[in-house]
Amino acid sequence: MFQGVGVVARVVLVHGIAQQFEGPETLGLKLGAALRDGVQLGANLTLEPADVACAFYGNAFIEEGTRPADLPPWDEKYVEDGLEAELLDAWFQRAAELEPSIPPLDEEGTRSLKAAATSRALQVKWVRARLNGLVKADFFQGLGKRFLVSELKQVRRYLDDPPTWQAARASVAEQVGEDTRVIVAHSLGSVVAYEALCENPDWPVTDLVTVGSPLGLPLIFRRLSPLPTNGIGAWPAKVLRWTNVADPGDIVALINTLGPLFASGPNGPVQDRTITNGVKMHDFGRYLTAPTTGAAIAAGLRQASA
């Protein structure tokens, strides 16, 4: 049911993982400014701060009433079999393709996940080899194992834990109002936004812009709600236009062409666009300031005003 009547934001931002130490106002100020810059650079359209709202769900990943000073001491022993291990392997394989500096796996590291899972000791070695490689990747910019394991767990929690995905989707619903026309979603937030749009066909949103999206990654695609039918994902409700923007060096956006994977909408299939974000391939701010992203956002706003 549409709950957001009266909210003035014309554009709603949906962030990705690793934002549990942020807040809706601080994150909204930073990302809102980047979006307004992108729209101005890409389409010569000026937006006011009140035109943009940020759906915040970072607090869904910490215990209620607490704010930990640091991440838990996670390492290879804490990566769970199944989704977490599959995602780790997908990231590692893509990073190894893009960055020759990542050392090759040894014989034990090249085992299949299924083979490694037959022994706890083998699985820990299998995970350690991939984490050791990823922490050397330029993409992750020296982030430690604890941070990488935290990211794996946040993705798994959203996909498998009902209270987490309910809180994330509710954060989007709180910001969508009668004036909202465009949703711009980054990383895991693109999954949140897509699923929220599919389950709320009464929303007035006409344009979805996804950036750095993992929606095409098979281990995520096959878990989407609603489930894909015959290998094709559902079109998100009443959205008229869907633009997907990806940097080819963005490891999270492993499958950066979404058009063939989803049904077409009223104005055609997903429009896939490629940009370069420099050394910060996955950064939400850089995606937002890109003229390509700004032009897609502006197109939706101008259509709404026509």
Results as ranks from 00 to 15, higher is better:
47 L>Q: 15
129 A>R: 09
291 P>H: 11
11 V>N: 05
152 L>C: 12
306 A>T: 06
45 L>K: 13
244 N>E: 01
145 K>T: 05
200 N>R: 06
53 A>W: 13
161 D>H: 13
253 A>L: 04
18 A>L: 11
134 L>F: 07
105 L>C: 01
173 A>N: 14
146 R>E: 13
241 R>N: 12
285 G>M: 02
305 S>R: 12
150 S>K: 05
271 Q>N: 11
3 Q>M: 08
137 A>E: 02
236 P>Q: 04
11 V>C: 11
101 S>K: 14
163 P>S: 07
176 V>T: 06
186 H>V: 01
196 A>N: 06
165 W>T: 02
272 D>E: 08
157 R>D: 13
30 K>C: 01
189 G>Q: 02
213 S>D: 08
240 L>W: 02
224 L>K: 04
133 G>M: 08
15 H>G: 04
190 S>G: 13
280 K>I: 00
106 D>C: 02
169 R>C: 03
191 V>C: 12
41 L>D: 14
42 G>R: 08
213 S>L: 05
36 R>Q: 13
179 D>Y: 10
247 D>Y: 05
55 A>H: 15
273 R>K: 15
78 Y>P: 00
168 A>F: 04
304 A>I: 08
231 G>C: 01
70 D>Y: 11
61 F>K: 14
220 I>N: 01
114 K>T: 01
190 S>I: 06
124 V>E: 06
255 I>N: 05
164 T>Q: 11
198 C>Y: 01
107 E>M: 07
32 G>C: 07
67 R>Q: 13
179 D>Q: 15
191 V>N: 11
239 V>L: 11
57 Y>L: 02
60 A>F: 13
195 E>M: 02
169 R>G: 09
162 P>A: 10
258 L>A: 03
55 A>E: 03
31 L>H: 15
53 A>Q: 09
57 Y>F: 14
56 F>T: 00
62 I>R: 15
133 G>Q: 14
8 V>Y: 10
262 F>C: 08
198 C>F: 04
180 T>L: 04
73 P>G: 03
167 A>R: 12
13 L>H: 10
276 T>F: 07
250 D>I: 00
280 K>A: 10
12 V>Q: 14
186 H>L: 02
143 L>F: 10
139 F>E: 14
277 N>K: 07
191 V>F: 12
99 E>A: 01
140 F>R: 13
238 K>H: 05
135 V>K: 12
195 E>N: 07
217 L>E: 03
295 A>C: 00
151 E>S: 09
186 H>W: 04
216 G>C: 02
36 R>V: 06
200 N>E: 05
49 P>K: 15
236 P>L: 02
254 L>P: 00
220 I>M: 00
174 E>H: 15
112 S>E: 10
88 L>D: 03
244 N>K: 10
